[in-house]
């Protein structure tokens, strides 16, 4: 089965994103495909590469990247959710004339059209919200 995931929860105040990550690992291990993981809303705040995770805690962003490296996941971040939270790639940094780009490498900024495409291209869309 082809899944897509919509991640909406805040990374710091709940376990939804961790559940999404575990679901992804489990689905991939069972031979399912994940068409796209779409990051939207408050969850986007955590995708800054300036974030420091305490050494005895888990860096979920890092774990998404590890999973993406192993299984070629498409990690897409809503561009309007990102720029309003100060999470910029180099292109948005230049466009808005800011001092630095900080989107964690491995994530791509794009529009909600990528969510619409995920809806059309997947057998299931799972939302991990609040």
């Amino acid at each position: 089965m082809i899944f897509s995931l919509l991640i909406y929860a805040s990374q710091n105040s709940g376990q939804a994103e961790q559940t999404a990550l575990r679901f992804s690992r489990s689905a991939l291990a069972q031979g399912h495909k994940i068409h796209r993981v779409f990051f939207y809303g408050e969850t986007v705040s955590a995708l800054s590469n300036l974030k420091i995770t305490p050494r005895d805690e888990i860096d979920i962003t890092r774990q998404w990247l590890d999973l993406a490296a192993d299984d070629d996941l498409d990690l897409v971040v809503c561009i309007s959710a990102a720029v309003r939270r100060g999470v910029l790639n180099q292109q948005e940094c230049d466009r808005h004339n800011r001092s630095a780009a900080n989107l964690a490498a491995g994530f791509n900024l794009s529009g909600l059209g990528q969510l619409a495409d995920a809806i059309l291209s997947s057998d299931r869309l799972l939302t991990f919200g609040n």
Binding site: Y40, G41, L112, G113, A116, I119
Partner: peptide, 19 residues
């Protein structure tokens, strides 16, 4: 909170994709 705005934006985007 921002959930109503975010949901509305999904509606507009998906409608533009003829969903």
């Amino acid at each position: 909170d921002s959930s109503n705005r975010d949901t509305l934006d999904i509606a507009l985007a998906c409608s533009a994709f003829d969903i």
